[in-house]
Each structure stands twice: as structure tokens, then as C-alpha cells.
Design a protein around this nucleic acid. Structure first.
Lengths: 247, 247
DNA sequence: CGAGACTTTGACCGTAGTCAATTTATGTGG
DNA sequence: CCACATAAATTGACTACGGTCAAAGTCTCG
């Protein structure tokens, strides 16, 4: 059952397959890339190391959450970083801010290590902008959608993003999230997430279980969930992550 | 009653008072600045003009909302732009995106018209980043706070931001928002906003009415509303907007 | 004064939260 | 490979926060 769709387990093996994005690969770049890869265990925070400089990272494998925890223990998750995503870590984690927490074992690389081609720079900027754009979708989700819509909408976003990096087979993909994480992302309670998922299952809209999700009738789902297809083009497609060959 | 705290009515008279931010004002810069000022009537959208270039604007006076409207009519407001705020307008308003809508009569200037001093550039970047940071607070607000907390938290943010540009006197400031706008910002219904405000009034926490808000016991409010003081330093303080002298 | 926008109120409903117990994985050590 | 410990998912009973609908009351402004 494991190793089927290898999100969550670090599998950097093929991570740089498309690294040169269409042009000749430079051995020095590849070496540099590899030297910069860092492994982070599930549950640990990313970029909180004492070396306080601000830098961009690329997720090679695994899932990261962007989180804030309130003083009274309430938690809000802002977004997930999936393989291929870029984020800026600043480590100046002033309280009440947001932190990056690995939800699985994670591999991240230094975005600078990819070489400074101007189009690559542009791609990185673009990816960061995408991530910000997604935040607006998230505000709509928790601000104006019902529980059912929220869950579906999020699943659709995840599916679309994972698809871009080749981690979706026949509308099926791995989601290494507990229902509690879902709840803290969507502004709902765990119990209600549980019931909403059951409802969706009963309606035959999705199949969920043991970390795997399948979306049925995706087109119909999109309208049910007020989902805007393809929020922004993911120009980084295929250069930071490839799904391992054995999938 | 009008003209007391002149938010909402365009009052550019003193807008460039602090424009030179401590150093000698350059007459050419001032002229340039004035030439770039654009007046936008309440209700109109900002930066939707056909000249499709992407640019940064500075709000000189008035309030702007950043909004998305869903296909079924539901509306979500992401943020408010207040005097002194900077935003990037792209006019490529692809559907389902967000638009800038003037909530009052508004004056905006072209950020480039302020001259290209490198520290001013930095200040502009900083202001844009602040705006993005505020979005995270907003996610927490609608994702994890109760109605009462949401309202208070938002009012505290507005107060703090207006204070920076001198638009708060004794914890009192003008808020040219209808309860409907509040509702669509905080993910609540108008009716519930209304009842929540009454509750807050009854508790003696705030005074609201005819577009004016007064916060009582601000320190206490902050803890009630899970409000993080001073989300980010507003380095643009005082250079794009000054409250009119006659206040 | 009258029209239209905004606010306020009441009655009622339903979505989602809370609490607590139970069941089902998922591991871990012997 | 089983026994136990722990985390996660699920269920039921009950509550409450917030939504909806509709009507009435206020403001504003031409």
C-alpha cells in the first residue's frame, strides 16, 4: 500500500529530472542543487534555524503547512506547500507570525542553488506570487463558503496543484493530512470535518480514506464548490519536482 | 458634524506635507506627484482603466476595498486600503480575481511619481509587504475568531492604521463603511453584524454610529479580540498623507 | 416631502461547535 | 506475532452561534 504515490516520503531521486527546464543541464548546477537539499522530519519547523538570513526555498518532496497558533491554542493553517512550491523563509519568527511546519518528512532545496538564469528568477517570483494569490482563494473559502464547499474547494485546489507535478493518477492522490489539520485549515471543528467528509462520500462525490483521495465528476464538483479552475499558471512546472519513476 | 475627521472626503490639500520624508522637497517631484493624482468617485473601481500597464498606486485620501464577487452573488472583501497605503494594480481583472473598489471618493497618486530614491523604493516595497501580511491576520479573523472577536479585531486594526496617518483623535476615527461591507469583510451576515455591534455597545467596549467609531479600553480590547499589536512597522508613515490642518 | 439606502427588530431555523465515549488504525517493544 | 499504548476517526446527544426572512424604523438627500 505504501510507495504507491510517494508524497510524504522523501523521494528526491528524480527531483531534478526537469531541473534544466528544457535546456542543457549544467553539472555544476546539479551538484549545487544537491548540496543545498535539506531533510526535515515530520513535525519540525522549516527555516527556523539560527542562520537568520532570508532566503527562498523550493519544496522537493513532502508537505509543509504555513501556520499560526493563537495564544489560547486555536490554530489556523494558511496554506500548504507542495513539491515544486517556493516560499520565502525569514526565520525572524516574531510571535504571532506564521511558521512553516513540516507535515511529513520533507526535502527542501535552496532556490538560489538552481542557478541565476533570468528566466528562472522570473519563474521563482511567479511561483511566490502564485502562493500569495492562493491566499485570496483561501479567504473566500473560509469567509463565504459552506463546510461542504470548503472541503471540496480545497480538495480541488490540492488536486490541481498535485496534478501539475505529476502526483495525480486518475483523479487520485495522496493527502497526508489528519482531519484535525483539515479543520484548522478550513476554520471548522474536527467533528464537523468528519461529518462533512462522510456526507461527501455518501453523495458519491469523493472517496477518502487512509491518506488517499479520489475526486469523482471533477467538473461538476468545481461548480458545486465555487472553484475557479487554474488560479494561476504554474510556470515552474516540472523543474523542481518529478514524481519518482516507479509510480 | 462633517469635516471633523475627513476620511472619505477627498482632502488632498495637505497630502504631500511629509512627502519629502525629512529631506528637502524637490519642486519637480511635487509637481510630478500632483500631476499623477487621480480622483475616483465612490463605487467606481480603481485601476480598471484600459491602459493595461501594471503599476503601484498610493492612496492619498479615501477608502478602497479589495473585493471578489462570486458567481452566485456572494461577496468577500479582502482588505481596505487607507490613506498612505500602497497597492499594485494590474487591470488584468481576469474573472474571479479581485478588484479594487472605491468605498468613498478617493484620490490616488502614482507611486512612481514620488521619485525613485532607493529608500523610497524600499519603503514602497515594505508597504506592499505590510498589506500582504495583513491578509494573514484576516484569515485568522474569519477562520478562528468569533463574531465579536472579528469585529473588535478589525476595528483595532483600522484604528492602529489610521492612527499612523494621524486620523485618530482620542481613540475616535471615521469608518465610512456600511454594516453590509463589514459583513462581507468578516464573513458574517448583516443582521449578525448589527447584533454584534449592539452587544459591543452594550458592553461599553465601543461607541459606533454615523460613520464614527470610538474604542474604549483599547488595551483590554486587544486581548479580548486576540489582537496582535502593530503587525508591521509602517515605514511610509507620514509621507503620503497628512490629515488636513483644520482637524 | 418622498425615494432609496441603511439600520434595527422579531421569530424561527439550521449549520456547525462542544463534550464525551467508542471504535479503528498505527505503531512499538517484548 | 501478539499485547499494549497512542493517535486518529467516528458516533451520539445536546447546545449555540450565526443565518434567513420579513417587516418596521431611521437617515440622507435631492
Amino acid at each position: 500500500m505504501s510507495g504507491h504515490l510517494a508524497v510524504g516520503e522523501p523521494n528526491a531521486a528524480a527531483a531534478i529530472a526537469g531541473l534544466a527546464s528544457g535546456r542543457q543541464m549544467d553539472v555544476a548546477v546539479v551538484r549545487n542543487f544537491w548540496r543545498s537539499v535539506e531533510r526535515i522530519p515530520a513535525g519540525a519547523s522549516v527555516g527556523a534555524s539560527p542562520d537568520a538570513r532570508k532566503r527562498d526555498i523550493v519544496v522537493v518532496s513532502g508537505w509543509i503547512s504555513e501556520t499560526r497558533i493563537l495564544t489560547d491554542g486555536r490554530r489556523q493553517i494558511f496554506s500548504f506547500l507542495l513539491p515544486g512550491d517556493v516560499a520565502t523563509v525569514s526565520s525572524e519568527c516574531h510571535l504571532g507570525s506564521r511558521g512553516l511546519v513540516a507535515l511529513t518528512n520533507v526535502e527542501v532545496a535552496d532556490a538560489d542553488a538552481l542557478g541565476g538564469g533570468s528566466d528562472r528568477q522570473r519563474a521563482i517570483r511567479q511561483a511566490i506570487r502564485c502562493r500569495e494569490d492562493r491566499l485570496f482563494d483561501h479567504v473566500v473559502r473560509i469567509g463565504r463558503l459552506t463546510a461542504k464547499e470548503r472541503v471540496l474547494n480545497l480538495l480541488l485546489e490540492l488536486c490541481e496543484r498535485l496534478e501539475v507535478v505529476g502526483l495525480v493518477k486518475e483523479n487520485t492522490f495522496r493527502v497526508p493530512l489528519t482531519q484535525e489539520v483539515f479543520a484548522d485549515t478550513l476554520g471548522l471543528s474536527v467533528v464537523h470535518i468528519n461529518r462533512t467528509l462522510q456526507q461527501l462520500r455518501r453523495d458519491g462525490l469523493v472517496t477518502v480514506g487512509r491518506g488517499t483521495v479520489t475526486l469523482h465528476q471533477r467538473h461538476k464538483l468545481a461548480s458545486v464548490a465555487c472553484y475557479q479552475q487554474g488560479g494561476c499558471d504554474h510556470h515552474l512546472t516540472g523543474w523542481a519536482y518529478r514524481s519518482p519513476a516507479y509510480i
